[in-house]
């Protein structure tokens, strides 16, 4: 491992200033570090300066009515142990629990996962299904952008050099579910991930899949197949079939395209049936 300087800015301005003075090749941003340290160890990158976000005041969790804003550097474990997330946004809780192990979730962060933008992310699909938005801070201030617009290419989100993700907002708590499939059920990379959510205010459904190239996506025709309120069994079945058929899967060493399509059709059906009539549990925050 090549040596590097580790800096700990204490405010958003200090963090942005660190990036302003550096060159893109020479600097890396550290959130949880679960991917970054592997990259450095395997010499995929060799930063001379690592800017740690650890001491920024970004580890917050704020409910505003039924809307939730999550600081980007809050460890995933904090989301997992928050009972209101489990009750009000069960899909998010299931997706968080799908990431790595407890030990890893004590370090890994939601912001890090989004900026990493792995096609295999277990969190991107549920954020898509929840219509989440990302707060990007940079030299020109702060802007909010939908996760769908933030995700772009594999490992390349729409985030300019010098910008950071400060927070993620989930506009409303939704009946939701995240189902995944792996060769080994834990501590493995998913073969597929399916997130579904139903808007309690508007009644519409979102269906998003992960482990597709180049990034997790919503499958709009599958969402549109769910016309009735609540959708009929036939509608659920055809939406699930469409999700399997239309997901941009590929074959790799974790599984074939054919198997993935089959799995998504099964998991999407199960997930939709699980949320079709579910109401948010627990008192509204």
């Amino acid at each position: 491992m090549a040596p590097f300087d580790l800096v700990h800015p204490r405010s958003t301005d200090e963090a942005l200033a660190e990036l302003r003075t550096a060159s893109p090749e020479g600097v890396a941003v550290l959130a949880g570090g679960t991917d970054l340290l592997l990259d450095i160890d395997r010499a995929r990158i060799a930063p001379r300066r690592v800017v740690s976000l650890r001491y920024l005041p970004w580890k917050f969790l704020e409910w505003s009515g039924d809307s939730l804003t999550i600081g980007s550097t809050l460890p995933l474990r904090a989301l997992e142990v928050e009972p209101r997330i489990r009750q009000r946004i069960p899909g998010l809780w299931e997706a968080v629990r799908a990431v790595g192990s407890v030990a890893l979730r004590h370090r890994a962060t939601l912001g890090g996962n989004l900026v990493r933008s792995a096609p295999t992310s277990d969190l991107s699909p549920i954020l898509l299904a929840l219509d989440a938005e990302v707060e990007v801070v940079g030299p020109h201030g702060s802007r909010w952008t939908p996760v769908d617009a933030f995700l772009s290419d594999s490992r390349r989100p729409r985030l300019a050099f010098g910008e950071l993700v400060r927070a993620v907002r989930i506009p409303e708590a939704r009946p939701s579910a995240y189902h995944w499939q792996r060769v080994r059920p834990v501590n493995d990379i998913s073969q597929v991930g399916v997130a579904v959510a139903r808007s309690p205010s508007e009644g519409y459904y979102r269906i998003a899949v992960g482990d597709v190239l180049p990034r997790p996506v919503r499958i709009l025709p599958a969402e549109e197949a769910l016309r009735s309120r609540p959708p009929t069994d036939d509608e659920v079945r055809s939406a699930a079939e469409l999700a399997g058929k239309l997901s941009p899967f590929a074959t790799d060493r974790r599984g074939t395209e054919e198997y993935r399509r089959h799995i998504v059709a099964v998991l999407a059906r199960r997930a939709l049936l699980a949320i079709r009539t579910a109401a948010p549990r627990g008192p509204a925050p």
Binding site: V183, Q191, E258, Y259, H262, I263
Partner: peptide, 15 residues
């Protein structure tokens, strides 16, 4: 006996 291998062996996949 991975999931995919068993799914193929048990002819679960809709081809």
């Amino acid at each position: 006996m991975t999931g995919e291998r068993l799914a193929r062996h048990l002819k679960l996949l809709r081809t």
